[in-house]
Design a protein around this nucleic acid. Structure first.
Lengths: 146, 146
DNA sequence: AATGGTGTAAAATTTAAAATTACAGGAGGG
DNA sequence: CCCTCCTGTAATTTTAAATTTTACACCATT
């Protein structure tokens, strides 16, 4: 039904890891301070990214590092990791159309035809943007404040 | 932050109007029965479509008709009519990143770069689908049940 | 064994969406 | 001309979803 803020938080975390991972131990508390998001939520997000192989989280002692090059991490991959069926929930369906009406009976199938296409297009669009692109935007903005 | 179910309801209504508008007076109560959505909500949706010139609603006596050919009614137009800034709310932003962190301070601008592109792509995708296409899907499904 | 982490689940809170209720006002038929 | 059926719209309540909070078991390193 929508792409949650968790996706934005995930990107924020990934930038942080990339920028500061070398010099600091990146913990959920630290990321919580930077993002303004609860540490428990951060850990849940990191856990999803970890399962997908995007990052590596050191258990016990703590600390997080990237697990693959930024140009292989697409927005699609991030969204998918955070919310596996985000694409099919893009547009909400009304839950109880009347089965007695020819249109109500078929509306979900009809909408699926179009929503499927839109969902595919969106996925392609998300695949075109990588963490590398985003990092480059970040550096650009950071050095050209206005 | 997401495309609401109202968009799906709007499409449902438009199909209904196109299919039954000639033979019946299409009122908000009738659409409510078919969609399973409250008449007041239906009226709000129809009101938005009307403002955009997509349909014509007869005040007083009631009844709704299309106001332009189905091939000119794109999904983009419908979404825009229902929720003017749907495109910029596609992906949620975390509201309170720390202004003390270089990343937190810039994250919204950074994300906007990418989200803008995705938003544009989505709009293009939505412009590619018209009510005519959807009606054709409906007829196809209706005559080939499975 | 003490410290500072992660992983994760349950409960509470917050927020957003939708339904409900209510009513003023118009058009047309009897 | 008034009665009925309808629209437009605002205020309130309800419901549902997302997020936070709390809590605690478990792990690695010092």
């Amino acid at each position: 039904m929508h792409i949650s803020t968790k996706c934005s938080v995930a990107i924020h975390c990934l930038i942080f890891i990339l920028e500061y991972g070398d010099t600091q131990k990146v913990t959920s508390d630290l990321l919580s301070l930077s993002t303004g998001i609860n540490p428990a939520t951060i850990r849940k997000i990191l856990s999803s990214l970890k399962k997908d192989g995007i990052i590596f989280v050191k258990f016990g002692t703590g600390g997080t590092t990237l697990n693959c090059p930024p140009n292989e991490i697409t927005l699609y991959r991030i969204c998918k990791a955070i919310e596996p069926d985000f694409a099919s929930k893009l547009i909400g369906l009304h839950p109880f159309p009347s089965p007695l009406c020819p249109i109500g009976k078929n509306i979900h199938d009809v909408l699926d035809c179009s929503y499927q296409k839109i969902s595919n297009d969106l996925c392609e669009s998300l695949k075109n943007i990588t963490l590398e692109n985003i990092i480059s935007d970040y550096h650009h903005i950071q050095h050209n404040p206005d």
